Simulated scan of single mutants.
Amino acid sequence: MIDYITKIPSELLSKILKYNKILIDLMLTCKIFLNIIKDNQFKMNWLFFHFGKSHALFHTVRLGPNFINVDLANMIVEKIGISRYFIQRLALRFSLYDKKLLELKLQHNNSTINDS
């Protein structure tokens, strides 16, 4: 079965995989699926498909530190924007885990102060 999967382009596989609501089952199936699902672009498209752009960032945080990373958060923010309240909630939840997210909070606070 793996031989057939390797012949399918990863772009097509990612479009097929995004229809699955539970990604953990696919991640455990094979390394090809695992690599596709770990890709930030795939994660963003999956979130938009299942939860819509308005709720994607919320569900990214809800899925926890194994799902979210700074690059994914930045990609989503570039597409939809972000509220100051959400940055505060994100920092409260993850600042203990990820110094880059704390730096993102500080950078966002500085930019809003400078814009005022």
Rank of each mutant, 00 (worst) to 15 (best):
K38A: 05
D25S: 15
D3Q: 10
P65V: 14
V70N: 04
K31H: 14
F51H: 13
N110Y: 09
F58M: 05
Y85G: 01
L96E: 02
K53D: 06
F86N: 04
N20K: 10
K15W: 06
M44V: 11
Y4N: 04
R62C: 07
F67Y: 15
L92T: 08
H50C: 08
H55E: 07
I36T: 01
K53P: 10
M27T: 14
H59I: 13
G64L: 04
I37Q: 06
P9A: 05
N45A: 12
L47Q: 07
H55M: 13
L17Y: 09
D98Y: 04
R93Y: 10
I22D: 10
F51I: 05
E78M: 11
M44D: 05
I80E: 12
L47N: 06
F51S: 02
N40W: 08
N66E: 14
K53N: 14
L57V: 12
L90C: 10
E11Q: 09
F86V: 01
K79F: 07
K21G: 02
N20S: 15
L96M: 08
F94A: 07
R89G: 14
I76N: 05
N69I: 03
I82L: 07
Q41H: 14
N66V: 02
D3V: 00
A91K: 10
N110C: 03
S83A: 01
E103P: 00
P65D: 13
